[in-house]
Design a protein around this nucleic acid. Sequence first.
DNA 1: TGACTATATACCGAATGGAGTATATAGATC
DNA 2: GATCTATATACTCCATTCGGTATATAGTCA
Lengths: 117, 117
Amino acid sequence: MQLAEIYQCFCDPTRLRILHLLTQSPLCVCHFQDALGEPQVKISKHLAYLRSRGLVQTKRHGNWIIYSLPDKPSDELALNLQCLQDCAQSDPMFRKDLQRLEKLKASCCEPAEVFAK
Amino acid sequence: MQLAEIYQCFCDPTRLRILHLLTQSPLCVCHFQDALGEPQVKISKHLAYLRSRGLVQTKRHGNWIIYSLPDKPSDELALNLQCLQDCAQSDPMFRKDLQRLEKLKASCCEPAEVFAK
DNA sequence: TGACTATATACCGAATGGAGTATATAGATC
DNA sequence: GATCTATATACTCCATTCGGTATATAGTCA
């Protein structure tokens, strides 16, 4: 059942925060590190977990590897990502993540593609 | 984060099927056994898992223990249960579960409260 | 009280998950 | 080629999960 696999990806707090940020824009590993305040190895491993299950895709841009949600998510994934966004709106943790992400976008000089939708 | 705990409950196929059936009506263990075709101990343990995390509640009715969704689910839980129902509509497994449940309801002579909403 | 029914729990083993430390890789720059 | 930066992977440890087998418990009925 694919649905259960989606929930397996959703069931860790760090992965949830990663996926939530990705609903805003594609990002690379260092952005997750800064926005979530978690060590590189932790972020990288959770991203690998999500990638191996098709929840995120990557493309390289110089030294950076840019993570994004799938171009064509399944109906189940799309529904659940929308639900995640709805739930996240009222959660302080998710809101803070977004705030830190906005600050990062404002302060850094990285190429537009990284944040491009 | 409570949200991650909800997804932990959702991330096993058997638990998903149980929760999906419960969106229809309260049920007791033997109904899950019959509708899902899984052994008693497996059902019982998953129900205990869900119960310990507040996803289901119980009341005794003679020898039966009737499981139901919480009277007042959190916003997050309500949203995700709705999402589950939406996803389940197009999934053959979930549809078959519902069919078997309907047959059970039609063929058995159990008290109305068990299936009452 | 004793048997029966529905359900729960204890215990075990295999598998997976998650965090940390250390190390490897790939591309960029000099 | 040497070095630097960003990211990934290997390894280890500990905790949790999941399934199965066996057994316990609570309520019912004779």
